[in-house]
Simulated assay, not measured.
Amino acid sequence: MIYFDQAASSFPKPVEVGEAMVYALNEIGANPGRGGHELARKASGIIQDTRERAARIFGCSDPKKAIFSPNATAALNQALKGLSWEDGDHIIATTFEHNSIRRPLENLKQTYGVDISYITWDESDEIFIERMNKTMNSKTRLIVTTHASNVTGSLLPLEETTKLASKYDVLTLVDASQTAGHMRLHMKQMGIDMMAFPGHKGLMGPQGTGMLLIEGDIELQPIFQGGTGNFSEEPNQPDQMPDKLESGTLNTPGIAGLNAALKAFEERQNENVPRETILTETLLNGLEKIEGVTCYGPSKYAHKMPIVAFNILDIPSQEIAMILDSHYKIAVRPGLHCSPLTHETLNTTEQGVVRASLSIYNTEEEVVAFIKAIEEIASSYNLI
């Protein structure tokens, strides 16, 4: 199997990720923060080490504000719904948002009467920032943006966005689902107030893990309440972080795997040109030469994530993906990718797109085989 669906979930994982998970499951097994015995202390040590490592890597000043969650979606919901909202408050987002942002925003709109503006980005950072600047008003309280499109791999101008937000004293929330693990991110240096990421995509950690990192004095109310292992005599949720936003037993084996993935990322994060970037350029260059193939998003020379979105003629993307899977043993992702506003922008709502996404474990031989498969498929449709 050629696995080109890394933007959905990475595969394979670094060997040390699975080893760390098995060790935590088979050798520790205890509940972190729920006891003073040796195994509980070891479990707590895994949690604390991972919290500190994530804060260090991503430039979060206070490790206590590095909050664990089951995934990026849960982290984004905590950030968005944990802020206090009033009728008429204004939020700015983009047309590239995944449903993990769009749906909570629409919920805030229906629940509190919050006004939402979705800004279009069409390959021009300058025009995008100008549009955002014109959309700002006295009621704007938050800019929430994906860092990179999960459909096309396009990188949005994050640092220009945070500078604009700072100018107007507006908070920023960044969805780093497609960039964490692929590039260096430092919240304090980049002016990011809150950032969410999953463990299982670019970081190549396990599914069922994610984090919300908070920089500075931002007051969030928990969207869940329950046991925290501390302050058990209190009827109300503790105010202390991280307990305030972490109720219930944490996924210790998953977090152990995430810690191993973060260690691996620390070792490779300063690479000049990531290997998957070179492979993506080769893939895009090959697809653009095939008659009947339309590629979407930035050119092969633009700085982007290792994602290539394309279609063949007017053939449904699901049909192409099915052929690749059944005949060529190649895994890709077709359809709307939980990002309908992106497809409205690309005019691909009816057809969707075929998305091929790569990681450091993919090879040039796989890229060559993929291009050949698309050539054969396109040729067969061109003859009809």
Rank of each mutant, 00 (worst) to 15 (best):
P198K: 12
A302I: 00
I192Q: 11
T282Y: 02
E219F: 07
M195V: 03
G286T: 11
K167E: 14
G229Y: 04
E266W: 08
L212G: 05
K304T: 15
P198V: 10
I290E: 09
G292W: 10
K263I: 14
E246K: 02
K201I: 13
E288I: 02
Q221C: 04
Y168L: 05
G216E: 11
G227L: 07
H186C: 14
P235M: 08
A256C: 04
A261R: 00
F197C: 11
P222T: 04
G202Y: 07
A264P: 01
Q221I: 03
A256E: 01
H186Q: 13
Q240H: 06
G254L: 12
T280W: 00
G210M: 12
R184W: 04
P206W: 09
K167M: 04
N270R: 14
P298S: 04
G210Y: 12
G208Y: 09
P274M: 13
E271K: 14
E291Y: 11
E219T: 07
P253T: 06
E234N: 03
D239R: 01
N230V: 09
D169F: 03
N270G: 03
E266I: 05
Y168G: 09
Q221L: 11
G254Q: 05
P298Y: 03
S166V: 00
S232M: 04
A176E: 05
P242E: 00
P206G: 12
L250Q: 11
M305F: 02
R275Y: 08
Q221T: 08
G181L: 03
Q269C: 12
A302M: 10
I278C: 00
P298M: 04
N236P: 02
P198N: 15
L284E: 08
G205K: 04
I255F: 08
K188P: 07
L203Y: 15
F231Q: 02
I255E: 07
F231R: 05
T209H: 13
E281F: 01
